[in-house]
């Protein structure tokens, strides 16, 4: 079913529901006790220590509370086998709905399609099947997450404009794990913008430890003193970019992806030009909300580009600063 057809179905169901609103609210009061027996499973693919997913989990929990349903959170620990086992166990235990990240197109296809056949609704969040639910790919109803390529392109354009990048410039793009889908897609978006002006970029894997990332990035910049700008493709390198540039004795612009307290401090002080916020809270919140609405009323979940191409910069960092951590 195409996205258009899905949206039409959702609208039609919405219209039906609006027409029968009096009855629906009567049912609401009668069936509230039953809704607390709805169990939704949320499976982030990442390691449980990844600070990005705290906001996702908070969004999911808030949504479950508002909808009066139960949410169970299991981390895939970046291991396909582990994530698949979690999904298979959930299907066997007849969970009511599943929200999951697809970091591998082929790994979960079978179990997800089996679950959908059994009537278990599935949505994806944060990372989708790269075919976006086309026939023959992983079965899911909708995706709630950022289009990394579009967001990377928007950031690239901004860095070119404000960092005065030009033809032949070399941009350093450090990332925690170069092989991960988010890294590949964000880099593709950034590089697309750079290619338009004839600039190049280089990736370096710097891992999850702040100190090691800082050392590696500084050494890279000392060895590549002709670097024109730094664009961190993940939270850890973005948070160390300003210090690494300073330690290497350079004066070049920096920007990046994701939000944390130190990243917002750097934006406030004008040391980072901008950062991309993919709104992790929205991803958890809408994944659980849309599953709950589907299970309660049969509403078809809608596609959502969380955060869009909006950047956090000096003009709007204040909201992000207030809620950094639990929500952003």
């Amino acid at each position: 079913m195409s996205i258009l057809a899905k949206s039409l179905t959702a609208c039609a169901l919405g219209a039906l529901l609006a027409g029968a609103s009096v009855n629906a609210y009567a049912l609401d009061a009668e069936h509230k006790a039953d809704w607390s027996k709805i169990h939704i499973l949320l499976v982030p693919w990442s390691q449980s220590s990844n600070s990005f997913f705290e906001a996702v989990v908070n969004g999911a929990k808030d949504a479950a509370e508002q909808q009066g349903v139960q949410v169970d959170i299991q981390f895939g620990e970046e291991d396909q086998n582990r994530e698949k086992t979690i999904l298979e166990t959930a299907v066997a235990n007849k969970v009511d709905g599943i929200a999951v990240n697809i970091a591998d197109d082929d790994a979960y296809k079978e179990v997800m399609c089996k679950a959908m056949e059994q009537g278990i609704p599935i949505v994806t969040f944060n990372i989708d099947d790269s075919h976006h639910g086309a026939p023959g790919s992983s079965c899911r109803m909708a995706f709630m997450g950022q289009n990394f390529i579009a967001a990377g392109y928007a950031l690239g354009k901004r860095m070119i404009a404000e960092g005065h990048l030009k033809k032949g410039d070399k941009v350093f793009t450090p990332v925690e794990a170069p092989q991960a889908t988010y890294a590949v897609q964000r880099h593709e978006g950034v590089q697309k913008a750079l290619s338009e002006i004839g600039a190049t970029s280089e990736i370096l894997g710097v891992g999850n430890d702040s100190g090691q990332a800082l050392s590696l990035m500084t050494q890279y910049l000392i060895g590549h003193a002709d670097t024109a700008a730094v664009i961190g493709l993940g939270q850890n390198p973005t948070s160390q970019a300003v210090q690494a540039i300073k330690d290497a004795g350079l004066k070049i612009p920096a920007g990046g992806f994701d939000v944390s307290k130190s990243i917002l401090d750097d934006i406030k002080n004008g040391r980072l030009i901008a950062t991309v916020d993919q709104q992790p809270y929205s991803q958890g919140y809408f994944a659980v909300t849309q599953l709950a609405l589907n299970l309660k009323y049969g509403l078809w979940p809608s596609e959502m580009d969380t955060g869009g191409t909006g950047l956090v910069d000096k003009n709007n960092y204040k909201y992000a600063e207030k809620w950094a951590g639990p929500v952003r």
């Binding site: 220590s49 999850n208 702040s210 130190s262």
Partner: peptide, 17 residues
């Protein structure tokens, strides 16, 4: 010592060390 240098600690930082 590492935390004092960087000023912040990532909960997953030391894995693999």
């Amino acid at each position: 010592v590492a935390a004092t240098r960087v000023g912040s600690i990532q909960p997953g930082g030391g894995l693999g060390m």
